[in-house]
Amino acid sequence: MPSWAELPIGQVVRLDADPDAVALALDPLPDDAPAVVTYFAAEERSVADLAASVLRELDKAAIALFPAWLPGAEGVEGASGVNVAAVQALALRRASVTGHFGPFLAELARRALTGGPSALAPEVRAAGLVRVLADSFGRARLAVLVRVPDGLGAASREVLVAGCEWLAHRGRAGVWLAGPPLHDDRVRTIATPLPTNPLPAAAVGAREAVPLPATADRAPAVAYPPVAGRPHPGSASERALEAALSARAWAGGRAWNQTYRPGPLDVPIRVDLLWERERCVVEIDGPDHRAPAKFAADRQRDVLLQLDGYAVLRFPDAQVMTDMDTVVRQIGQFLRNRRRAEG
């Protein structure tokens, strides 16, 4: 079985594993893996439409992850002329020493502050976005894990494969298909380096638990990992909780999206929010956490953390967004109790 580092870049392959098992194995991102973003494919009429969809979603991810890919731009906010000039200068300086395409990086930095579409060619954007997203997670390479929807017809499968080949070749990204087979001779199936115990037994085979976006009424989307130390930019609930906690003196010492390994042979665990000294973990659960595979994996993670002395406080993201006062009060009460117990 290959390692994650051995999976091909610059071509399209199909993974021989359940998509949910792959997703759980990639959270947190293994040390030997490229950066991985997940594209939830929808039915497209043409290769051009698919390429436009993928680029649009990768672009949204890159903008959301700013300034993780532009060192020195931390704290630069707002679309003033001074700020725009500053991030463009940083982008051109970074391009000069890293090999990024300067005009692309400078335009992306500007749009991170001002918004608006890109004026560059799709081929330029594909190559640039792949490098930027890899940089955001401190990796040299990027793979796009494509979640293939069920029920694609022959024409739609052809569009999907051809569009994925375009992204792999133009962007120099790995494109890993997961889901139902496409019955296409151009796409070979390869072994997937899953850990020996990625899921509890009850979760294995629960592929239907994580719904894919419906092709008729939902646009394609890209999911991507968080950057350690920050709320996930794609999570409104994480960002809202951080805003609420930042005003509380007792909330000091918190760290977002940290990786924790219970033992040297255990699979690492990524936690949403951590107070290390108080051994307190806070998890914010979206609707996907109610699915059998994710639910079972969460319970396994909680047990491992509790055996190591951590308390795990779980809140639905809907509660965070609608009843923030209760969430903050309960977190604060737990932390104060722990601190008093420690003397």
Rank of each mutant, 00 (worst) to 15 (best):
P262G: 00
R254M: 10
Y260T: 10
N257H: 14
Q306H: 04
A311N: 04
L274H: 03
V320F: 01
L241A: 08
Q258F: 05
R299I: 08
E278V: 02
L194F: 04
A318Y: 02
L265M: 05
A243I: 06
D217E: 14
A223G: 13
E276K: 05
G309E: 00
A206M: 14
A206F: 07
Q319P: 00
D285N: 11
H232F: 06
R279L: 05
K294H: 15
V267H: 01
R254V: 12
G252D: 11
L199C: 10
V267I: 02
S235N: 01
I269V: 07
A297F: 07
A255D: 11
P233E: 13
V267Y: 00
A243C: 11
A228L: 13
S246F: 15
A206P: 03
A296C: 07
R261F: 08
V210H: 14
P268F: 00
V303D: 08
T215K: 11
W256H: 09
P233I: 11
A255V: 10
T259E: 14
D302M: 01
G234K: 10
A296R: 10
A209N: 12
L305I: 01
E208Q: 15
V222C: 06
D217I: 12
L304N: 09
V204M: 10
V312I: 02
A219R: 14
L274M: 04
A240T: 10
R290V: 09
T259L: 13
L241Q: 07
A291I: 11
A244F: 09
R218C: 14
P198I: 06
L241S: 03
